[in-house]
Amino acid sequence: MSNIKHVTYRNLGWDSTADIYLPADFDETRRYPAIVSTHPIGSCKEQTSGNVYAAGLARAGFVAIAFDASFQGGSGGQPRFIEDPAIRVSDIRFAIDYLLTLPYVDPGRIGAIGVCGGGAYTVHAAMTDHRIKALVSITGVNFGRLIREGFSAFNPVGALQAMASQRTAEAQGAARQVIDYLPPSVAEARQSGVADIDVLEATDYYKSPRGQTPNGATSGLFSFNGAAMAWDAFLHAEVLLTQPLMVVIGDKPGGFGAYRDGWEIYGRAASTDKQMVVAEGWSHYDLYDRPEPVALAMARVVPFFQEHL
Rank of each mutant, 00 (worst) to 15 (best):
E46S: 13
D15I: 01
G77H: 04
A58D: 05
Y21H: 11
S70P: 08
I82T: 06
A60H: 03
R59C: 11
D15V: 04
D84H: 10
T17Y: 10
S16A: 14
N51M: 13
Y53S: 03
I20G: 07
I87C: 10
V36P: 03
E46Y: 08
P23E: 05
G61C: 01
A54Y: 04
F62S: 04
E83S: 10
A86T: 14
D68I: 01
Q78V: 12
P40A: 15
E28T: 05
L57P: 03
T17R: 14
F67T: 13
N51E: 12
E28V: 07
P85L: 02
I82Q: 14
Q78K: 14
F62E: 06
R80I: 08
W14A: 13
W14T: 11
F62T: 09
V52L: 08
D27S: 00
P85Y: 00
S70Q: 12
D25P: 03
A58R: 06
I65Q: 03
A55P: 01
R30V: 00
G76F: 01
G42A: 11
G77V: 02
R80P: 05
P33R: 12
F62A: 08
Q78M: 15
S16E: 05
T29L: 03
A66S: 14
I20V: 11
S75Q: 04
E46Q: 13
S70Y: 02
D68C: 01
I87G: 09
G13N: 15
S16D: 08
L12D: 15
T38M: 07
D84S: 14
G61L: 03
A58S: 12
D19I: 01
G13Q: 15
L57K: 03
